[in-house]
């Protein structure tokens, strides 16, 4: 493999040397309005985000709870599509060449654009990884090949229901990091049981050297701190979107900055 070391790998290597864990916020591109997305990405980095997961709006987000569904619907009202999302990443990259950006979403917008076209445009824009909820490894050999060629990491999910065989399969296909879905349910559901999560992370880490992040159901700094004792990254999504829902357009970015700064502080303490 002659792939260059990715921004994602660099980020985890740097964090490991600093004995810190990655904080990965998720926001939907174009929510609450398209103008906010790029400033919001910069603000999240300022507040301590190590990697940004940027949601690609989709009309039928089957694996997401009501909070992320609403964020998708708001973005779609502005007509935000995959091309726009790539443009936001390009804009962000003008002043930030350090922080990895992972696009997270569903298969159909990529299918529609065409895999090769997407890979080229994403690479040009400065995208580092893609996480497609409804492309499991069995159905995404083409995606993996195309993204590998473009130097983009394909990130896969594991869940509490993943069998040992599937952990093996997903670990073999995964690039960048593995995203462990911490509960049986949709994004933003009830609080998680960290001891169950710890057990599963140990099983996954026995199969892979890749970093393992945990998401779904992490709602505060204390949970993030507990998770970061045994996981390499903490993903927070619905909680951030809810924070913006209670804010005005003028205060949304500031509120997210405060929330993330607080979580970062607790994770590093």
């Amino acid at each position: 493999m002659s792939r260059p070391v990715s921004r994602i790998a660099n980020t985890f290597a740097r964090l490991a040397s600093e004995k810190r864990k990655a904080l990965i916020p998720f926001v939907t591109a174009g929510d609450p309005s398209p103008m906010i997305t790029v400033p919001l990405m910069h603000a999240m980095v300022d507040a301590g985000a190590d990697i940004i997961e940027l949601g690609v709006p989709f009309s039928d987000p089957m694996a997401d709870g009501p909070v992320i569904q609403r964020s998708s619907e708001r973005a779609l009202k502005f007509g935000v599509g995959l091309n726009d999302v790539l443009a936001y990443v390009g804009e962000f990259r003008k002043t930030n060449q350090m922080t990895p950006v992972v696009l997270m979403g569903y298969a159909n917008p990529i299918e529609r654009m065409g895999m090769k076209v997407f890979a080229e445009r994403a690479s040009t824009a400065g995208v580092d990884g893609v996480l497609v909820v409804d492309y499991p490894p069995e159905e995404s050999l083409g995606l993996l090949e195309t993204m590998d060629a473009a130097g983009i990491d394909v990130i896969y999910l594991l869940s509490p229901t993943s069998s040992p065989e599937r952990i093996k399969l997903v670990s073999a296909a995964a690039r960048g990091y593995i995203y462990y879905v911490s509960l049986k349910g949709v994004s933003g559901a009830a609080n998680i049981d960290t001891s169950d999560v710890e057990l599963m992370i140990a099983k996954i880490k026995a199969q892979t050297k890749l970093p393992v992040g945990v998401g779904f159901g992490i709602r505060d700094g204390d949970t993030a701190r507990r998770i970061s004792r045994f996981a390499d990254a903490v993903v927070i999504g619905s909680r951030i979107i809810q924070e913006m829902e209670t804010a005005t357009p003028d205060t949304a970015v500031e509120k997210v900055r405060e929330l993330l700064a607080d979580i970062r502080k607790k994770m590093d303490s």
Binding site: P136, E139, T161
Partner: peptide, 9 residues
């Protein structure tokens, strides 16, 4: 089978 990991099992 284009579904999220949680439903695979």
């Amino acid at each position: 089978v284009f579904v999220a990991e949680t439903l695979q099992a």
